[in-house]
Design a protein around this nucleic acid. Structure first.
Length: 421
DNA sequence: TCTGGGGTCCTAGGACCC
DNA sequence: TCTGGGGTCCTAGGACCC
């Protein structure tokens, strides 16, 4: 947009479905409406507002949630419906502008500058979006409207539940400075605690803090960023497409012995998940990182960077395994592990993938023409094809051996993956 | 039942090259 | 030969977000 001489307009919307998974469950089953519910079992994946009132929140162990809220009703998730309804809500936004940046399954920014002649001012659009999501999808959604993304996001948080807040460009600083620092993007539990120790509780107090002392407290980049945001300087624009920088998978294991018969099948399963996702998107990565969390929750990571990108399941699995062996030798006294993770980064788009050629030109493990690389590549493509037709569970590496924790349904993992788009 | 799973970005130090 | 600076890449860990 060309710069305008007229006063700045609040043109950015942030739309956020309220307690999304729980609201979908209450929509599907009217008996659950108005009652404290939690999606999940072993771990709370989402809580309704009635449950949140008792202090229940996502990520909380189910047992603790039950203690806090004795009448809590646990329900199984309807994960396909979450995806469909989340997509549908985004489409409502897209009916008003193509400039939509989806942040997650239930949340998006939209830039409505230039659509006034068609749909009226931003506040009218926000009201229409809320009404349509309510009427067509049966779900509550909160919307914030402001001149910047940061302010719009804060406004939608303030609007919750099921509300609408517009931040008048003339009153931005007054609005912002009265709010607690925890509402800022980038202030989590650690930063919040550090600030509290200095007596900083509001965004206004943060804004007045000398830059140097803030940077000493939380680091250079974070300090600069927060100071800018506290003074309402947010240069970020709407990005309709962002490219992925890494792809990973993890599995919590409870408490399992740190032995090959545990980690080998788990790593193969994780490598398989990542590999098939990378191949589906014609991506491959050069750096493989593993994370091993011990029984006491301390975690270590080990990484290897290759000369050429890889996406073949067997190669990912082998490299991950060798890194975990490294950890095992280094931490020989650790007898139990509680989580394994693999992540692939330094991603590159690989047009060759579409030509069904082996990956990793120059990589000794998968050089084109070597029986090893080609065999693996062909096997992976065959597997991918079977899964395209019959589903992911139809066939796989070590699926018979893999006994990962079942606390999180695979449908939820699939959802987390698709969240990327 | 000791705390899920998917990501991004930053920091600090070391290796290496010019 | 010694000292120093700048840039890039990599690794490990940590904070944060949804």
């Amino acid at each position: 947009m060309a710069s305008q001489a007229s006063p700045p307009q609040a043109n950015i919307l942030h739309a956020d479905l309220d307690a999304f998974y729980a609201s979908v469950e209450q929509k599907l089953n009217p008996q659950l409406r108005g009652r404290p519910i939690a999606v999940g079992g072993g771990v709370v994946l989402a809580a309704s507002y009635e449950a949140k009132a008792f202090g229940v929140h996502g990520g909380m162990p189910g047992r603790k949630a039950r203690e806090l809220c004795p009448g809590l009703i646990f329900v199984n998730g309807h994960f396909e419906q979450y995806q469909e309804l989340g997509d549908a809500a985004i489409r409502v936004l897209e009916d008003f502008t193509p400039l939509v940046e989806r942040i997650s399954i239930d949340e998006a920014f939209a830039d409505v500058s230039g659509t006034e002649r068609l749909f009226g001012p931003p506040i009218a659009i926000a009201q229409a979006v809320r009404q349509r999501v309510r009427d067509e999808l049966g779900l509550p959604i909160s919307v914030g409207i402001a001149r910047t993304k940061h302010l719009a996001k804060i406004a939608s948080q303030v609007a919750k539940p099921d509300g609408l807040v517009l931040v008048d460009p003339a009153g931005e600083i007054e609005f912002l400075h009265a709010l607690p620092v925890e509402l800022m993007w980038g202030v989590g539990p650690v930063t919040s605690q550090r600030l509290a120790e200095k007596g900083i509780r509001t965004i206004g107090q943060l804004a007045e803090m000398p830059g140097k002392s803030l940077e000493r407290l939380i680091g250079h980049a974070a300090g600069e960023k927060l100071t800018a945001l506290a003074w309402n300087q947010d240069p970020r624009l709407i990005e309709t497409r962002r490219r992925a920088r890494s792809a990973g998978a993890q599995s919590a294991l409870g408490r399992r012995p740190f032995v090959e018969s545990v980690f080998r099948p788990t790593l193969r399963h994780l490598a398989d998940r990542i590999g098939s996702r990378l191949r589906a998107r014609s991506l491959a990565g050069r750096t493989i990182t593993v994370r091993v969390r011990f029984a006491d929750m301390r975690a270590v990571t080990r990484a290897a960077t290759l000369p050429a990108p890889v996406a073949a399941t067997a190669i990912l699995a082998e490299i991950a395994e060798s890194l975990v062996w490294q950890v095992r030798e280094e931490f020989a006294s650790e007898r139990f592990i509680s989580l394994l993770a693999i992540s692939v980064s330094h991603l590159e788009k690989h047009p060759l993938l579409q030509l069904e050629l082996p990956l990793g030109l120059g990589d000794e493990q998968s050089r084109p023409g070597t029986a090893r690389g080609k065999g693996r590549w062909t096997a992976d493509r065959a597997l991918d094809a079977v899964r395209d037709r019959f589903g992911w569970e139809a066939i796989g590496y070590g699926s018979a051996l893999f006994e990962g924790s079942r606390s999180v349904p695979d449908a939820f993992r699939e959802l987390a993956e698709r969240d990327l788009f």
